[in-house]
Design a protein around this nucleic acid. Structure first.
Lengths: 148, 148
DNA sequence: GTATATAGTTAACTAGGTTAAGCATATTCC
DNA sequence: GGAATATGCTTAACCTAGTTAACTATATAC
């Protein structure tokens, strides 16, 4: 029924405004203090991904962009760079206490706001969304692998 | 199985890198000449959405951002602003011949590149993706309506 | 011990987004 | 008819996030 050409088109029509939507959710509801990429960096660190270049890979951005964004998070006191004695080329990134508390607060708020929308969906729609997102994840992960 | 809280989290984890992926596809393969938002503006005009503020609404950005992006497309000779004698507050946006040809070319290239990835999916995965995208579309459309 | 790879930063640039202020035109309502 | 308001758009000043290129510092490999 749906050809892959339709799918590519649909993808390019739906992903960008979805991104805008998530961004404005973060901005308007989650305190105006954190952007989506910043939030995602905190989330990565929170999950134990502590090396800047690894986070850059996961997020699909350059190391230069990551370096700047981490700068911003350090300036705001959310993240600290800890020297790594084993390999002094890289730092170990940690959330500060402030960063940890802030991250959890924002995560809760952002997810609650998204949840208001998501909860208006029926059960089968939620399942469809979950499955669709899983495919999307697989897609861009394999795309990233192909680049190396 | 999947709570809506998981879904909100998943959404925030998957949409942003998907956007990065689509962006880098556009940049690397589709000639380095058009960004995703620019492409989407051309697509809107191509489909007959000729009023700047309507396109801004569809894309979920401010009129100011739209004005600047259209400026860029006019400068590149892809779009022209035509005075509207009925209501002189707004212009009628048209693709130039150059813009029309260029849009079709880029659309084909971008979709072909996305298709390479999408074609690696199985039939049921494609269906899942299609259904998931439909739900996503419904989600952000209803979110946008709530803002008014 | 030189060559190369890796981690990160900095600089110069661009696109795309914001809000606020303002202009011109339409519409509404007394 | 004329003042108040709404609409469409632009401009200005600003910010974030992204790029590439060039650089430093450290590890690794031959």
């Amino acid at each position: 029924m749906s050809t892959s050409c339709d799918l590519a088109k649909k993808l390019m029509e739906i992903i960008p405004p979805s991104m805008n939507w998530i961004r404005s959710e973060m901005r308007s509801n989650a305190n105006e203090e954190l952007t989506v990429p910043q939030f995602r960096i905190l989330a990565s660190i929170f999950r134990g991904n502590n090396i800047a270049c690894d986070i850059a890979k996961v997020q699909g951005t350059s190391q230069a962009a990551m370096s700047k964004m981490i700068d911003g998070l350090v300036t705001r006191g959310f993240v600290e760079r800890e020297a790594n004695s084993n390999d002094r080329r890289h730092f170990h990134l940690n959330l500060t206490d402030t960063g940890d508390i802030f991250f959890k607060k924002i995560r809760k708020m952002a997810q609650n706001n998204l949840n208001e929308q998501i909860n208006s969906l029926g059960k089968s729609e939620k399942d469809d969304l979950a499955r669709g997102l899983a495919v999307l994840e697989k897609l861009f992960l394999s795309a990233m692998e192909n680049e190396n």
